[in-house]
Design a protein around this nucleic acid. Sequence first.
DNA 1: TTTGATTGGTAACATTTGTTACGGATTATA
DNA 2: TATAATCCGTAACAAATGTTACCAATCAAA
Lengths: 224, 224
Amino acid sequence: MEKQDLLFFCTLCREKPAAEIEKLQCTISHTVKNFKRDEYIAYQGDKVTRLVMLIRGKVRTEIVSSSGLTLPMNDISAPFPLAAAFLFADDNSFPVDVIALEECEVIYISKEAVEKQMAKCAGFMRGFMDFNANQMQNISERLKIFAQKGIKAKVAYYLLSREKKGAFELDRSVASLAGYIGVERPSLSRAISEMVRDGIITFHSGKGTIINFDAMEALLIRGA
Amino acid sequence: MEKQDLLFFCTLCREKPAAEIEKLQCTISHTVKNFKRDEYIAYQGDKVTRLVMLIRGKVRTEIVSSSGLTLPMNDISAPFPLAAAFLFADDNSFPVDVIALEECEVIYISKEAVEKQMAKCAGFMRGFMDFNANQMQNISERLKIFAQKGIKAKVAYYLLSREKKGAFELDRSVASLAGYIGVERPSLSRAISEMVRDGIITFHSGKGTIINFDAMEALLIRGA
DNA sequence: TTTGATTGGTAACATTTGTTACGGATTATA
DNA sequence: TATAATCCGTAACAAATGTTACCAATCAAA
């Protein structure tokens, strides 16, 4: 259970000891529901009127089109709020179908209860805001990578944003990095090889260094 | 002044008449600052410790690299909060430089004041949440477009998400749509032409209809 | 050790996209 | 109306990326 569980109960008011919390009116009203494998937890287009927290299990989200074809998006493991960000949006409907991949448990908290709780409990509010802010940051970071034109530019952006004194370490496999930046694995592999060949970086088994910073910058400007 | 000004003063508590608001302790402490054209309002990496609201003028944001080259991102017109979403993030630093394009006025509200105000005034909180939620929705919609592989897939996704009974209307020029989905204008133009040629859509001066839904779906699945 | 699975580098070729340049159409401006 | 500016369709070519396939290296399980 990470920061996300801030969203569950006011146990999240970490600022105070658990014992003290019990005394506060910090319990949030909610309902619980269980889902079996392959059941639909939410349908695309459903109004998001409640905060939907996945507290046990794993789900798959997919876009569904009018003709019935589906397009898998992400898998999400508990604990995680589903579409928390959209709870307050104007067009607050689920952007995807949500399907249980295994036995799942979900709790629902009404929007009103969430608002009340936020007003009542600063810790809860902070937890909610933090979660949304971090998610926003992740997504906007990814968008910036996608906005870079050319694989090398994407790679350069990715590496520059996490190098320390020229050294970097991939926190994922090359294959998953390819997925993350939206290109094919062999293409990414080729791009890295060429950057090594051109003396811009070194790279071996997940670790490397940036040799030529100027060349990296140049890649950002124009996909070369 | 749109919804954004919800974030300014508690005049935003629209739920109550203005006269009544005066009586509440709904004034939020803030400081004001003016900037001249070309002045820096914020530097990339600056900690976001206060809510920064642009209330007059226009700014440009750009990514700056260590070697000094810049990469322009977006232009933003008042009224608009700058990096509101990052106020609560863990790594809460400005992702970009912010430069005044013209005479600008900015107000600063401390994070603490924002938190207090949210606790005190439900309207303010709702305004803040709404704004962030909507921004999140926009950005994630854009990310989904970028995640589509192939120009036609991007176009199909874009059109399918806004067609009504098969009819669609672009709310922007072809050139700006090209920028939005991250491709070159001639490439987008060609893609549209081919889709028209193949009898998938009609298109003329910003308006069109989807003729072959199945083909549109197929484009989403595999960039064809 | 052997086996099988995963990871990732590479190559040849197909396909898509970018680039550059041109011209027609439309709109704003003098 | 003339003039310039913008928008956008088109084409030919260059460049980047995807596709498919193969093999080597690594690692875990038998």
